[in-house]
């Protein structure tokens, strides 16, 4: 597997990722630093006092020099300090938030693939029956209904109607913060609604691709041969067809990953889940420059490596592909 060619390919991709991350972080750095105002200004803090503070934090220097200073730290894993909570180091903050987002995103990915592949396979096997039509229509509905609508529906049903313990105020446990206790089963339960809200959207595309590629594979000779040999249709499908049908599914994974990340941003803000997406919206409105840049940087790294892994898996699933 890991022959010389593959290693060279990986090295090339890593260089490309590093380049992308640098361009992205520079672009965001310039954008946030060119926003009017800053994190410090208030009714009391302006004029000379503000200038002093900007100078103290090196914010009165040219943006390029500030970026260079930031980059020097970032290479060593130091993403700078927060300006809202003055002096607090960013790296531990975003890493903690990343772990939260990863949990939500991971759960959403499971929902996406689980639902998408299952529905796609069933629809293909029952091609042109009502099952097929229902599932394909459901797939379109999945990516047509915005995640905040699904999330609201979930809250309405689970919080307001089924469990009206208090005066109806919506209570969503935040086990990530350790705020209300939690952990274990409660984490799983509280993950389910966000994960489904995100996953329904992204699973629609997966359903369609799985169905289409399954249909193509089923028509192919070796499946027909296997069937002719008397193997039962369902086992044939699962054993032979699915593996080959998954190749096109892999090809849309980068798009799925982007879709999930976007969903996570929205859902975190709806459920006030303290992850990267929530942090991004908060930090950009509060002009906590380093946090905004830090979140972008982490996303860029994440997407870069996610795509690399998908491409490598591609080669594993489909032996014809070599790097």
């Amino acid at each position: 597997m890991l022959n010389r060619g593959t290693l060279i390919y990986i090295a090339q991709r890593v260089v490309l990722i590093a380049f992308t991350v640098m361009v992205v972080s520079f672009g965001v750095f310039v954008v946030v630093h060119s926003l009017p105002g800053n994190a410090f200004i208030s009714d009391r803090l302006h004029g000379k006092a503000l200038q002093l503070l900007l100078h103290q934090y090196g914010l009165d220097q040219p943006v390029v020099i500030q970026y260079w200073n930031w980059l020097k730290g970032a290479i060593h894993g130091d993403l700078g300090i927060s300006l809202v909570t003055r002096g607090a180091p960013i790296t531990p903050i975003v890493l903690k938030e990343l772990s939260v987002s990863a949990m939500v995103g991971g759960a959403a990915l499971l929902v996406t693939i689980g639902l998408g592949v299952t529905f796609g396979v069933i629809a293909a096997i029952r091609q042109n029956t009502w099952v097929d039509y229902t599932l394909t229509t459901f797939a379109v509905i999945g990516y047509s209904v915005p995640s905040f609508v699904i999330a609201s529906l979930g809250i309405l049903i689970f919080a307001n109607w089924l469990n009206n313990v208090s005066n109806g105020a919506f209570y969503y446990p935040l086990p990530w913060q350790g705020t209300y206790g939690g952990g274990g089963l409660s984490t799983l339960i509280s993950l389910s609604l966000p994960a489904i809200s995100i996953g329904l959207y992204t699973s629609g595309q997966v359903t369609r691709i799985t169905r289409a590629s399954m249909l193509e594979v089923i028509q192919q000779d070796y499946i027909r041969t296997a069937r002719a040999k008397g193997l039962k249709s369902r086992r044939v499908t699962v054993r032979h067809a699915l593996r080959n049908a998954l190749v096109p599914v892999m090809s849309i994974m980068p798009s799925t990953v982007l879709g999930i990340l976007t969903g996570v941003v929205v859902i975190e803000n709806i459920f006030t889940i303290p992850g990267l997406g929530k942090e991004f919206v908060t930090s950009i409105t509060q002009q906590d420059y380093n946090l905004t840049v830090g979140v972008f940087t982490i996303y860029a790294v994440l997407i870069g490596f996610a795509n690399l892994i998908v491409d490598l898996l591609y080669a594993v699933v489909d032996p014809r592909i070599r790097y």
């Binding site: 689970f158 919080a159 089924l162 469990n163 009206n164 313990v165 208090s166 209570y171 969503y172 446990p173 086990p175 209300y180 206790g181 939690g182 274990g184 089963l185 409660s186 339960i189 509280s190 609604l193």
Partner: peptide
């Protein structure tokens, strides 16, 4: 609230 109730069932302190 369904969630919270299940959650509370899981933790004695919460209950």
């Amino acid at each position: 609230m369904r969630f919270s109730r299940l959650k509370l069932g899981g933790t004695a302190v919460g209950l």
